[in-house]
Amino acid sequence: MGKKVLIIDDSSTMRKIVTRSLRQAGLDFDTILEAGDGQEALQLLAKESVDIILSDINMPNMDGIEFLRQKSANAAIKSIPVVMITTEAGADILAEAKSLGAKGSIKKPFTPEQVSEVLGGLM
């Protein structure tokens, strides 16, 4: 069965850019799902299984840190790897994300090569 990725970002532009970067990086996902914030992502994950999640941090309704917190408390989805894609490059916030289970981070702006480098080790 093909691999599925979930992209969480409140910017539709950024979701399209991440999708394009995944393809340019040669990462083979059969299905790319999208959510506009953490809350929408949790609702989607209640119905769909995915192999990896790429999430922004600064989002309305439910930000990326709260999403990680709720995901890590949910046994059904806690093991899905998450990579943060964010303008928030502070060591403290990335450390908080890591403590909540994030497996890596990609700073905006990014190249497809950087996406490939971070995701390659998790696929």
């Binding site: 910017s11 532009t13 303008t87 490059a89 502070g90 403290d92 702006p109």
Partner: peptide
């Protein structure tokens, strides 16, 4: 809006090491 967001993120990183 997203361009402004990325630019602000870059400026923010110059202002403080602590994201909060």
């Amino acid at each position: 809006g997203e361009l402004a967001n990325m630019l602000a993120g870059s400026i923010k990183a110059k202002l403080s090491d602590n994201s909060k």
